Simulated scan of single mutants.
Amino acid sequence: MYIWNLKGLVQALKEGSLSNKSKRLYKVIGIFLLALELLTYPVLLVTQPFNILDIIVMIIYLVINLVGIYMAYTINQRGDGKGFLFRYISLYVPLTLRFFVFVLVVSIVEYTIILFIDPSLSLDETNWFDLIISIGTDIYFNILMVKYIKIINR
């Protein structure tokens, strides 16, 4: 199983050389991560203070990800058109782990900057910095997904 080695995973997906055990692991872990992402967001909205920026973040998140999935699907169909869901879920595992580390680092930098600019922005409510970071990271994730789907279909 390829966790950090995206090039190795892409090559294995391209060649169809993943073992059945690896395929099952990618499916289970990918579906678990996807479910975790989709199910925790509504819980956070209920338990955290809610403002208009939260609604904007949620709408933008849905739009960016739906467009990203559609683009990846279209690219896959233009290629060999095989196994989009498995390819997506398989790539989702290492990309989500990288994405998590990336967002963690960006968030630490963001809140360090916010403390120097305006400490009142670091309250529990979503602010403009959060909105910008959310948009940027969602776009980055989907660009990577589309990029690797393109590579698999060459």
Rank of each mutant, 00 (worst) to 15 (best):
M1K: 11
Y2F: 14
W4V: 07
W4E: 13
A12I: 08
K14A: 09
G16Q: 12
S17K: 14
S19H: 11
N20E: 15
L25F: 08
V28R: 04
V28L: 09
I29E: 04
F32A: 12
L34N: 07
A35R: 07
E37D: 13
L39S: 08
L39Q: 08
T40W: 06
T47F: 08
P49C: 06
F50D: 01
N51P: 00
L53N: 03
I55D: 03
I60F: 12
V63K: 00
V63Y: 01
N65Y: 03
N65S: 05
I69S: 03
I69F: 13
Y70H: 03
Y73E: 04
Q77K: 10
R78K: 09
F84Q: 04
L85Q: 04
F86Y: 11
R87M: 09
Y88L: 15
I89T: 12
Y92K: 10
Y92T: 09
Y92S: 05
P94W: 02
L95Y: 02
L95P: 00
T96K: 05
F100H: 05
V101H: 10
F102C: 12
V103D: 00
I108W: 15
I108D: 00
V109L: 09
E110L: 10
E110I: 04
Y111P: 02
Y111H: 14
T112R: 08
T112E: 09
I114Q: 03
I114K: 04
F116K: 05
F116A: 11
I117V: 14
D124A: 12
E125C: 03
E125D: 13
E125T: 01
T126F: 05
N127C: 12
W128H: 07
L131P: 02
L131R: 01
L131H: 02
S134C: 07
S134N: 14
I135W: 07
G136F: 06
T137M: 15
T137C: 15
D138Q: 14
D138V: 06
D138H: 15
N142Y: 09
N142C: 11
N142W: 05
I143R: 12
I143P: 08
L144I: 04
V146T: 06
V146H: 01
V146P: 01
K147S: 01
Y148M: 06
Y148N: 11
I151D: 04
N153P: 01
